[in-house]
Design a protein around this nucleic acid. Structure first.
Lengths: 336, 336
DNA sequence: CTGAAAGCGCTTACAG
DNA sequence: CTGAAAGCGCTTACAG
C-alpha cells in the first residue's frame, strides 16, 4: 500500500521509447549523440514514467556525486545554519546539492561523520566545527583524499583553504567604538580559548585597550563557556566582582545578552552605567526590546564563498591553500 | 598536493591480505564465512590502508543507502533543527545516517529536493515543511515509492504516517490558563491559516474562549504572518486598535515576543495590563529578561519518533498509516 | 546519429 | 570455510 510500483530504470525508458540505453543517457544529459526529435520523445516518455536516474549508479560510474557535505557541530545554532543557507544557494547555481550533517561535539564524531561522507556520498566537505587543536582529524581527512574547506573556524597551520573574517580587527573596531565614549573600566568576556575566532576577538579587544593605555580589569580570566547557563553565571560573577565596571566586551551576542539580563537584575542601567557589546550579529541580538551593539558576520556569504572554493578543488585545482577574508559590519545598537 | 593517493578499494585489501574479495566483504560486514583469525587480519589491513567502502557501490548493489533524508523549509529555524537533532540520535542508534536538506519555501523546491533524494540517495524521507494544500507534492512523492513521514505539519487526509502533538488541545490549555486569571478582553494572533498546526492552535484558543462565553475581540482577523517584521506590525496594530486588550494569545513564541516588545514601547505593563502567551517553547522565549508563557513542544522527541516510524516503513511494513500524538508541556512564564 | 559492450566497486548466492 | 562469477543501473568510448 505504502509504496508505488517499482522504480523505472533507464532501460525501461529505452524500451518504451524504442531506442538504446545510450540514446536515453545522451538525451537526459543533454549531450549530443541523439537528434532533437528523438530527444524530445525520450524526455516525454521519461517524465511519463516518472523516471529518476539512480544517483548510486551514476555516482559509481562517474566517480562524482555532485553533492557536497556541510558538517555542523550543532545544527541548532543559527550562526552556522546561516552559512548553510548561503552554501545551498551557491551550490544550486553550480548544479550541486548540499547535505548537512549534525555531528555534535567531539573529534570522534567529527571523524565518523566525515568518513561516511568520504565513502563517496559527497565530493567535498565544508568543515565548520574545528577547534584549534583538531590537526589530527584534519590530517586524517586530508589523507582520505577528499577536498576540504574550513568555514570560519580553523586549525592553526592546516594547509587547507579557509574563508572567514578578520576577527582580530573586528574585535579591535568594536572595542575602539566603546572606548571612544570615554569608558576606562572595561572587562572582557570572551568565548573558549580553544577556538580560533574566540582567541582572535579577544586579541583585538586587548589591542584596542592597549592603544588607550588600558587593559581589561578582569585579566587574565577573560575566556570561558558561552552556553546560556555558563554565560549567565560568568556575567553575574563579573558584575558582582567589579561593581564599577563601565563596559563589557563580549566574544559573542549570547554572552552579551547574558550581561544585559544580569544588569537588569542588578538594577544597572544599560548603556548608562554599563556599555555592552556582542559579536556575530545574530537574530536574537536585534529582535529584543534592546538591540545589542555587535559586529555582524556575513554568514551566508561565508557559506557561498566556501562552496566556490570547494568546487574549485573538486575540479582538481591543487594550487596552494588560500585564505579568503570577507568584510564584516560594525553595528552599533542600544547597548553602547 | 591537495589530494592524497587514490582511494583503496575492496580488491586492494583482498590482495594485500591474500584472500578473495568475498572474504573481505564478509569480514567487514561481520557475516560468517571467514574465520576469526583471517577476519582479524583483514580488518587490520583494511584499517592500515585507510579503506573506506564505497557507499555508491554498496548502495547500488544492495538497494539501500542506510541514509535518511530530512527536508527543512528553513534550516535556520531552531524549531525544526531541534527535530533534526532528535532524528540524528535515533538514526545513529539504528545504524543510519541523517542528511538534512534546506529546501526553502515553495512546493517546487520541495519537489526538486525530494526528487534528488529519491534518486537512491536516501531510503526514506522526513517531511517537515508541508502546507495543508501540498497534496500534489505528497502524492507525487508517494508515487515515487519512497517511504515518507510527516513531522509536525501535515497535509490534511494524506495517507502517510504523522508524528506531532495535539495543537488544538495545547491551544485550549494555555488559553484556559490565561482565562483562569479572570481576563475577558482577549485577542488572538495566530500564524498562517495554511499550516495545519497554526489552524489547530487557533481552534483550541477559540474553544477555550467559547467555554467561558467569550470570543476573541479581533475576530476574524486572527491569522497572519510570523516573520519578525510582519509580526511586529501585527502586534502594534492590535495594541493600537484595542487599547483595552487584557490578553493576547499568540500562535508562536516569536509573535509573543513581538507583542511583548510592542507593549514595552507603548508603556503597557506585562503581565499587569496585558498577559501574553506564546507557543513552541523556543530557546529565545526563555533566555530574555522575561520568560514567555508558552506551550513547549517536544521537538527532539518528534524527530526521534519520526525516524522510528520511517525505519519501520523502510523495512517494508505497509500497514495503514498511523498518527503518533506526543505529549506537550504547558510552561507558564513571566508574561501571564 | 545510433547500438552493443565494458566497467565503476561492491555483495551474495553458488560450487567447491 | 573459501573462491569465482554475476549483477545492481548507469555512462562512455568505440564501431557501425
Amino acid at each position: 500500500v505504502a509504496t508505488g510500483g517499482k522504480r523505472p530504470k533507464l532501460s525501461d525508458v529505452a524500451r518504451a521509447a524504442g531506442v538504446s540505453a545510450a540514446a536515453v543517457s545522451y538525451a537526459l544529459s543533454g549531450e549530443p549523440g541523439v537528434g532533437p526529435d528523438v530527444r524530445a520523445r525520450i524526455l516525454t516518455i521519461a517524465k511519463e514514467l516518472g523516471y529518476q536516474p539512480s544517483r548510486m549508479a551514476r555516482g559509481l560510474r562517474t566517480g562524482r556525486s555532485r553533492t557536497i557535505g556541510l558538517l555542523l557541530a550543532d545544527i541548532t545554532n543559527p550562526f552556522y545554519t546561516d552559512m548553510a543557507v548561503g552554501a545551498v544557494e551557491a551550490a544550486e547555481a553550480a548544479g550541486y546539492e548540499v547535505v548537512v550533517s549534525h555531528v555534535g561535539l567531539g573529534p570522534e564524531r567529527l571523524t565518523a561523520a566525515a568518513l561516511t561522507h568520504i565513502g563517496g556520498l559527497t565530493d567535498g566537505l565544508l568543515l565548520t566545527s574545528l577547534r584549534s587543536d583538531d590537526e589530527a582529524v584534519v590530517e586524517e581527512l586530508r589523507q582520505a583524499g577528499i577536498p576540504l574547506i574550513q568555514l570560519y573556524r580553523r586549525v592553526a597551520g592546516a594547509p587547507i583553504d579557509w574563508v572567514g573574517i578578520d576577527d582580530e580587527q573586528g574585535g579591535y573596531d568594536i572595542a575602539a567604538h566603546v572606548l571612544s565614549t570615554g569608558r576606562t573600566k572595561v572587562a572582557i568576556l570572551g568565548g573558549l580559548a580553544g577556538y580560533s575566532a574566540s582567541a582572535a576577538r579577544v586579541t583585538g579587544f586587548r589591542q584596542a585597550l592597549a592603544t588607550s593605555g588600558l587593559h581589561a580589569i578582569n585579566e587574565p580570566d577573560v575566556h570561558g563557556g558561552i552556553d546560556m547557563d555558563v554565560a549567565s553565571a560568568r556575567a553575574m560573577d563579573l558584575l558582582l566582582a567589579y561593581p564599577d565596571v563601565e563596559a563589557v566586551l563580549c566574544g559573542g551576542d549570547l554572552i552579551a545578552l547574558s550581561v544585559l539580563v544580569a544588569c537588569q537584575q542588578l538594577g544597572r542601567s544599560v548603556p548608562g552605567d554599563v556599555a555592552i557589546t556582542g559579536f556575530n550579529g545574530e537574530l536574537f541580538a536585534t529582535i529584543g526590546p534592546m538591540r545589542i551593539s555587535t559586529v555582524s558576520v556575513p554568514r551566508q556569504l561565508i557559506g557561498a564563498v566556501g562552496v566556490q572554493l570547494l568546487l574549485r578543488r573538486v575540479d582538481g585545482d591543487d594550487s596552494p591553500p588560500v585564505d579568503q577574508t570577507l568584510p564584516y559590519l560594525l553595528r552599533p545598537g542600544d547597548t553602547s
